[in-house]
Amino acid sequence: MKFYSPLKNTICGVLTAGLLAVPLSFSAVPSPAAEADASSLIGAAIGGIAAHAQLNAVLRKYNDTDEGRQEYFQEMKKQLGVNEDYALNHQLDRIMTNLTAGIGAVDPSIYKKPYHYFINNDKSFNAFCTLGHNLSVNTGLYQTLTNEDEIAVVLAHELGHGQKDHPAKGARRSLNMQILGAATGTQAGAVMAAVINNRNITKPMEREADALAFDYITHTDYNPGATAAVWQRVLDLSKSQPSSFQQFLSDHPADSDRRDTYVRRLTQYSGGHVTNSDGIVKVNTKVFTTPAAVGGMSSKERSYFVMGNLAAAYHNGQNKQEVTVDGNTVRMGNQPIMTCVSGDEPADTLAQRLRQIK
Rank of each mutant, 00 (worst) to 15 (best):
M1L: 05
K2C: 01
F3N: 07
S5M: 04
S5N: 05
T10H: 15
T10D: 06
I11S: 05
C12S: 10
C12D: 12
L15P: 01
A17T: 07
V22Y: 15
P23W: 10
F26P: 01
S27R: 12
P30E: 15
A36L: 14
A36Q: 15
D37N: 15
S40F: 02
G43Y: 01
A44I: 02
I46T: 07
G48P: 05
I49T: 08
A53N: 07
V58M: 14
D66N: 09
D66S: 13
E67A: 15
R69A: 11
E75T: 15
E75P: 00
K77I: 00
Q79R: 11
E84C: 01
R94E: 10
I95H: 05
I103D: 13
Y111F: 13
K113R: 13
Y115K: 01
H116Q: 12
I119K: 08
N120E: 13
N121G: 02
N121V: 02
C129I: 01
T130S: 14
T130V: 07
T130L: 03
L131I: 03
L131K: 02
H133R: 10
N134P: 00
L135T: 01
V137W: 06
N138S: 09
Y142C: 12
Q143P: 00
E148N: 08
I151G: 03
A152G: 05
L155V: 00
H157P: 00
G160H: 09
G160R: 11
H161P: 00
Q163H: 03
H166P: 03
A168F: 04
K169E: 05
A171I: 06
I179N: 08
A183V: 02
G185H: 09
G185N: 09
T186V: 14
Q187I: 02
A193E: 15
N198H: 10
T202L: 15
T202M: 13
M205G: 09
A209D: 09
L212K: 08
D215V: 12
D221H: 15
V234K: 09
K239F: 02
S240A: 14
P242H: 05
Q247E: 14
Q247F: 00
H252P: 01
A254Y: 10
D255T: 11
V263I: 11
R265Y: 02
S270I: 05
G271E: 04
H273F: 08
S277K: 10
D278K: 04
D278Q: 12
V281E: 09
K286Q: 13
K286W: 00
A292G: 05
A293M: 03
V294G: 03
V294E: 07
S298A: 07
G308K: 09
H315R: 15
N319F: 03
N319Y: 08
K320G: 06
T324L: 10
V325L: 15
T329M: 13
V330G: 07
P336Y: 13
I337F: 03
C340N: 10
S342C: 04
G343P: 02
P346D: 11
D348I: 09
T349M: 11
A351N: 08
A351D: 07
Q356P: 00
Q356I: 01
I357A: 10
I357W: 11
